[in-house]
């Protein structure tokens, strides 16, 4: 049994302690915006925020998360897609297949929270998520657009 605070709601879940947070979010909690792709923290499709920090949830055992830690998934980033990063993504039509994009958005939102005016190099150092469709240039442009669009909320 584990107690998790996800998107502001406490969830009691009955899982083995070594279950990765990703699969608890997807299967027990039922939020499927967070994606499985590699399972070894290489690609970032499973990125969520844990206390505001971009975290690859596919290798994080649920037992390593405390009930006090605030987990935010893409579903909790904003109620209606209005987070500045989401708005910038929409404005620049960033996604292609879209499968990696929720992870990219979570990584970008955490980056801007920590560094509201990132340089190009700051962006490429922090944004290491894989996009197989190759939307990297639009992702970079969207991050800069979001940074210039005003205050970034957490």
């Amino acid at each position: 049994m584990a107690s998790l605070t996800i998107n502001g709601t406490v969830h009691e879940v009955d899982v083995e302690p070594d279950t990765p947070l990703l699969w608890v979010i997807r299967e027990q909690v039922g939020l499927t915006g967070t994606k499985y792709s590699c399972g070894i923290a290489q690609c970032g499709a499973c990125t969520v925020h844990v206390d505001g920090v971009a975290t690859r949830s596919c290798t994080l055992p649920v037992s390593a998360v405390t009930p006090e830690q605030r987990i935010v998934t893409i579903e909790g980033l904003s109620p209606d897609g209005s987070h500045p990063v989401q708005k910038a993504w929409l404005e620049l039509d960033v996604p292609q297949c879209g499968y990696c994009q929720t992870g990219q958005i979570m990584a970008a939102a955490a980056l801007l929270q920590a560094n509201p005016q990132p340089s190009d190099e700051d962006i490429t150092v922090e944004m290491t998520n894989i996009c197989r469709c190759g939307t990297y240039n639009r992702i970079k442009a969207a991050i800069k657009l979001a940074a210039n669009g005003g205050a970034i909320r957490g």
Partner: peptide, 26 residues
């Protein structure tokens, strides 16, 4: 603009891997 962007930004887009059916096993 693409017609399929908005749902890909919020997690609402359902991919095949996200399908849920009543009583489903894995």
């Amino acid at each position: 603009k693409r017609l399929d962007t908005a749902e890909k930004l919020t997690g609402k887009q359902v991919y095949s891997i996200d399908v849920k059916l009543p009583g489903m096993l894995n």
